[in-house]
Simulated assay, not measured.
Amino acid sequence: MTASDPLVAATPILNFDHPSIARLVEDKGWKTLSPYDRIGAVYDFVRNEIAFGYNRADNISAAEVLADGFGQCNTKGTLLMALLRAVGVRCRLHGFTIHKELQRGVVPELVYPIAPEEIIHSWVEVETKTGWANLEGFILDSEFLSALQSTFSDTLSLCGYGAGTGCLQAPPVEWTGGDTYIQKTGIVQDFGTFDAPDDFYANHGQSFSFVKGLLYRHIIRHWMNARVRRIRSGKVPQIPGLALPNHQHEESRHAS
């Protein structure tokens, strides 16, 4: 690793030189840890201290994600990359699209039909002693994921509510030195790896019309975040075609 290594460099989006990020890294003492534990500590922070939610855009800076205190795959990934580079860990972005079905239940049913069929997605690839590990399991915070697991306790495979996994009750989301995933089964297109999110978004942005972009930023995402908060509290809406959430099974039994 050299000073000019692009996989540890700051960028306008990966602005780990911002005072708020520098202060966080210093306060947490992450630089004193072993490389393995640095990755784990940063990963756990982004996974659980930054809640699952929807920011105003994918290409906001790491400092803005930290200030928001929430994010989704792309924005939480930006913060994860910035923090990893701040502690000297090499990382890169792997870009994809996922099918919009994965967001059903979070996207209101009224809006779902007009949502793009494919949604920009990414995960972070981090260099370890044994090679590159794919980190995607940080997207859903543990409280949100636990709500889905409790609600669909008899469900093995789930594509919806922000999850895309074939092992809902025990998805590989903990840092153990290898790959972590929580939305992998929703992937459609693979765009390959990029040194930084700046490069990715310069070539692959979410295609919204001007009006839809305004609606998303000012209305729809706030609606989605309200639904995320309800799901986190255990109030999971039914998706047509999926098994009833457990609490709705109970309501159906009581009504019959």
Rank of each mutant, 00 (worst) to 15 (best):
T2D: 12
D5L: 09
A9R: 13
P12K: 03
I13W: 00
L14C: 10
L14F: 02
L14V: 13
H18C: 09
P19S: 01
S20R: 13
S20H: 11
I21Y: 04
D27W: 01
K28R: 15
Y36R: 13
R38Q: 14
R38M: 09
A41M: 00
Y43A: 05
V46M: 01
Y54M: 14
Y54L: 14
N55I: 02
N55Q: 11
A62L: 10
A63L: 11
A63P: 04
E64W: 00
L66Q: 10
D68I: 04
F70W: 14
G71W: 03
G71M: 10
G71I: 11
Q72A: 13
C73Q: 02
K76C: 09
T78S: 15
L79H: 03
M81G: 13
L84N: 05
A86P: 02
V87M: 03
G88E: 08
R90W: 00
C91S: 15
R92A: 06
L93W: 01
H94W: 07
F96I: 00
I98A: 11
L102W: 00
R104Y: 01
R104C: 10
R104G: 06
P108G: 08
P108H: 09
E109H: 01
L110R: 10
L110P: 00
I114W: 04
A115F: 11
E117G: 05
E117K: 15
E118F: 08
W123F: 15
V124G: 04
V124D: 02
G131S: 12
W132H: 05
W132S: 05
A133F: 07
L135A: 10
L135G: 05
E136F: 07
E136D: 15
G137V: 08
L140P: 09
D141P: 12
S142M: 04
L145A: 12
L148E: 06
Q149A: 10
S150E: 13
L156C: 01
L158W: 04
C159M: 14
G162V: 10
C167H: 12
W175T: 03
W175K: 09
G177M: 03
G177S: 02
G178N: 08
T180Q: 01
T180M: 02
Y181I: 02
K184C: 10
I187K: 03
V188C: 05
Q189A: 12
Q189H: 10
D190N: 15
F191R: 03
G192H: 03
T193M: 05
F194W: 05
D195W: 05
A196Q: 09
D199C: 10
Y201K: 01
N203G: 10
Q206E: 14
S207D: 12
F208R: 12
F208Q: 04
V211M: 11
V211W: 08
V211D: 01
G213Q: 09
G213H: 04
G213V: 01
L214W: 15
H218S: 11
I219H: 04
I219K: 02
R221H: 06
R221F: 03
A226T: 12
A226K: 12
R230F: 06
I231F: 05
I231P: 06
S233A: 15
G234T: 08
Q238C: 09
Q238V: 13
P240D: 15
A243K: 11
A243P: 07
P245N: 03
P245G: 11
H249R: 15
E250M: 10
R253N: 01
A255H: 13
